[in-house]
Computed example of a mutant assay.
Amino acid sequence: MKKILVTGSTGQLGSELSVLAPSYPQYEWVFADRTQITLDNLEMLQSQLETICPDIIFNCGAYTAVDRAESEKDLAFRVNHLAIELIARFTGENKAKLIHISTDYVFDGSSSIALDEEAETNPINVYGESKLAGEIACLKENPKSLIIRTSWVYSKFGNNFVKTMQRLMQERDEINVVNDQIGSPTYAADLAKAMIDIIESSKWIPGIYNYSNEGEISWHEFALGINELGGYNCKISGIPSSDYPTPAKRPSYSLLNKKKIKTVYNLEVPNYKDSLRKMFA
């Protein structure tokens, strides 16, 4: 029986994988939180990996506090770069499979067409820099790794845009949401299923893949969809990013082209509205 280690098990993606895991009893699942897999302590991480000795690693653990990363650069790089380097080296040496989750924030937002896996990377914040460094180290240490870049992740678990909007829409009569950052949301349950489908597939083709739900929207349009599906009676105004300054800059356009993952692994990618409906249900 193959053993799958899921890092970051209490996060959005790890939690969605734990919901799906019972449907795949042919695997021994190990869901590791930050006490069992310590991404910010490399010596401890090495011995933890050796103890668990997985056949497959779903690396869902990351430093994801985008704004805080601007003032915690060392920690962001330790978790998102050095820990990934170590995990990739471990999987390479032990002939284990690795699916590592990355982000649309490796791009600078200057594109006007959906970004494919060959698009030029140029992160504009520390979080994006640390994730790109992790990608590079991952493929260098284990060229047989598979990296999935995703964007705007949400779930019924953890903290995310959808849950924040649901709360605010019930508390307030009116909210402002930026309307000049374009991309597509990702329902973590869809991404979790895609990861399992890849492992279940008869082929393993390493490299970088993009995955988010279908649709091209702004955060403002996303908020309008949440308002509509939730039946909230809240007025939502679109504002430019300049009216909502944050410590970390965000890419203004980071829509991901999903053609490669759909073609190689024959995956169906749901539209964002269908998935949002599913989460609400």
Rank of each mutant, 00 (worst) to 15 (best):
T10W: 02
V269F: 03
A88V: 13
S212T: 15
P247N: 01
R250T: 14
G225W: 00
Q48L: 12
K193R: 09
R89E: 13
R277S: 10
E141S: 10
E50F: 07
C138I: 12
I198A: 02
R250C: 05
P247V: 12
V106P: 04
A114D: 01
V106Y: 00
S254R: 01
V6M: 02
E72P: 07
E70A: 05
Q46D: 06
I84D: 02
A281I: 07
K235P: 08
I136T: 14
I239E: 05
G14T: 09
E28N: 10
N271M: 11
T51G: 00
E93H: 10
D116K: 02
S237P: 07
G230T: 14
N160G: 15
E117N: 09
R167Y: 07
T121I: 12
M165Q: 03
A96S: 15
I175H: 07
K235V: 12
F222I: 12
L168Q: 14
A88Y: 10
I217S: 04
V79P: 12
T164A: 04
K249M: 13
E16T: 14
Y154C: 09
G134C: 11
P123T: 08
R149W: 03
I57G: 11
S212A: 10
T7Q: 02
N80K: 06
K249Y: 01
E93T: 14
K278L: 08
A65P: 08
I124A: 00
Y127W: 01
Q166N: 12
K131R: 10
A62C: 13
E221M: 06
E268V: 15
Y265R: 00
S47K: 07
L255A: 06
I198Q: 00
Y265A: 00
E141F: 07
K97R: 13
D243I: 07
S184V: 13
W219R: 07
I4N: 01
I205C: 01
S218L: 10
M279N: 09
I198L: 02
E214R: 10
D74R: 09
F90N: 12
E216L: 09
L224M: 07
K258L: 13
L256P: 08
I226A: 03
Y127C: 03
Y272M: 04
V126I: 15
R78E: 03
